[in-house]
């Protein structure tokens, strides 16, 4: 396969809020911009039912609707999207290459905006049982467990908001957390405690998924007492954080031990012309608004880099 002749000013990998904000700022500044997305616009945001903490939407906004609007914003100034999965990136040269099954794209700058995905527990049969009792999306699958018993694993924002959502649908909920307290806004914690059908298992971890054809329960170990118990449940919702999707860049840009791309507030990586925006960047707060912010900064830095060449 021959590389495309045209060399783009900016190539963006990933179509979440970071990617589309970089596309908007880049295209509006007059750069030629192509965004590559393997699935559909939105990334993690696209899977969110109601976004309540992105400014400008007093009634909240559906994550997928917001994604389509961000895409439109970028396209208004000429940014293009190609739904193609990148199989390899070559980032070290002055002209950078992105390989997809159909094309080899060339660009002078690259914005890495691949985001992150939900972490798995890493237990045996976890993959097989997905859709048969194991879920990573409470708003997607909660209704299949109406009136049933489910467990949530985790203790952060996602686990707590999943808990609130499921407490209204399910008969009984176990919240299994490895620490002895939650890490979520206090009003939400209080609401969860007051829901009445949530039992908290502190200092506990899931050591096995019990199953026949589908999930039937969990084996849970209390880390303090060493006590092991088996909980019968119809479903388990796993909310134990995120894993950065930086694999394409590993070995070329500097990453932290836990796999995030190392770039400061200016989104610059150790490679000239390569920027990291959104959830895959090592940073203290991962939200739609901070992803969008990174995207804007990355586009400005890319423009500065192109001007200074």
């Amino acid at each position: 396969m021959e590389p495309e002749k045209n060399i783009l000013d900016m190539l963006i990998v990933g179509g979440g809020p970071a990617g589309y904000t970089a596309a908007l700022y880049g295209a509006r500044a007059g750069l030629s911009v192509l965004l590559l997305e393997k699935l559909a616009p939105g990334g993690q945001m696209g899977t969110t039912d109601m976004v309540d903490n992105y400014p400008g939407f007093p009634k909240g906004v559906n994550g997928f609707d917001l994604a389509m609007q961000m895409k439109e914003c970028a396209e208004r100034f000429g940014a293009k999207t190609a739904l193609e999965e990148v199989s390899a990136l070559e980032l070290t040269g002055e002209v950078k290459l992105a390989h997809t099954p159909k094309h080899i794209y060339q660009a002078r700058t690259v914005v890495l905006a691949m985001g992150s995905h939900p972490r798995e527990l890493g237990l045996e049969r976890e993959g097989d049982l997905r859709g048969r009792g194991v879920s990573y999306c409470a708003t997607c699958d909660g209704m299949f467990y109406r009136g049933k018993t489910v467990a949530i694993v985790g203790g952060g924002n996602t686990a707590v908001s999943d808990g609130l959502y499921l407490s209204r649908l399910c008969d009984k909920i176990y919240l299994i957390h490895r620490r002895d307290k939650l890490r979520a806004p206090l009003p939400q914690q209080k609401a969860l405690e007051q829901a009445g059908n949530v039992e908290f298992l502190w200092n506990s971890e899931v050591t096995a998924l019990l199953s026949g054809d589908r999930l039937s329960g969990l084996r849970v170990r209390n880390k303090k007492t060493g006590e092991v118990q088996e909980l019968a449940c119809d479903g388990v919702f796993i909310a134990v954080g995120q894993v950065p999707d930086a694999q394409l860049a590993v070995g070329q840009v500097a990453c932290s031990e836990d796999g995030y791309v190392l770039a400061g507030e200016d989104t610059r990586t150790n490679l000239p012309g390569v920027f990291a925006a959104g959830d895959l960047r090592k940073k203290p707060l991962r939200q739609i608004v901070t992803a969008a912010s990174d995207g804007a900064v990355a586009a400005a830095m890319a423009q500065e880099y192109l001007d200074g060449r």
């Binding site: 997905r130 048969r132 009792g133 879920s135 299949f144 589908r214």
Partner: peptide
């Protein structure tokens, strides 16, 4: 069809389930 997670895509051949994919998938 035992769907407990969506999206789920099921391929039917001659009235039988030939394959099931759970979760968001690429076109490939």
């Amino acid at each position: 069809y035992g769907v407990m997670s969506i999206p789920t895509a099921i391929l039917f051949k001659n009235g039988e389930i030939a394959a099931t994919l759970v979760g968001l998938q690429q076109k490939s």
